[in-house]
Amino acid sequence: MSAKEEMLTLNLKIWRQEDRNDKGRFVDYKMEGVSTDSSFLEMIDMLNDELVKEGKDPVSFDHDCREGICGSCAMMVNGQAHGPNALTTTCQLHMRSFTDGDTIVIEPWRSRAFPVLKDLKTDRSAFDKIIAAGGYISVNTGNAQDANNLPVSKENADLAMDAASCIGCGACVAACPNASAMLFTSAKISQLAQFPQGQVEAAERASNMVREMDELGFGNCTNHAECEAACPKGIDLRNIAHMNREFLKAKVKGK
């Protein structure tokens, strides 16, 4: 609806895979009349509408809020996690970022820890397992003390907020040559370590979460920083350094 709206013709190469056991392959689709005002997912909706009308199986992909906050959508677009724009999830990517006649290659996240379920849908439950291993402050519901009894410096509060912005989409893993989940894991560890009550179990938390991460088959960090570049929420690489410090403390304490 913007003044600059144009219609695009596009060649799509989309990864199609029946289920976990299927080998999978790229399939070509030609799209016409795609508005530059449409979002990337609305463009796939259009394709799916055509496929369904022809009685064919639509392209399966995870999506929900379409506002860039739920972390469901997850695609490699021309080899980049979430596509060409910085700080943008796939659902917030708009077709004005493409040009008439472009070929767009669309693939699922590629990582051993995120097996493909169908087409572009993957199983990211490994992230839940990392959080379950220690991504919390161990407080039960009940009569917590008055919220203002524990002042937290604005600097710490802001650092915690920045780390807590992670949406758990998995782009960091998909972008990393080692499929490491360190950016994801470290963001939670450093968020909680900013608070006095989060300090109590900080070392143990780091130790447990890192152990779980390793057991799930995620790779190591070798400082490529691809994760930070791919992260749609701008999670800072320094969180990993913070995590390593907490992890070291845990080792010193023998945890």
Binding site: I137, N143, A144, Q145, A147, A157, A160, Q194, Q197
Partner: peptide, 10 residues
């Protein structure tokens, strides 16, 4: 109070 105790970064 509960959310602050959990580490919600208000």
């Amino acid at each position: 109070d509960q959310c602050v105790a959990q580490g919600v970064p208000f």
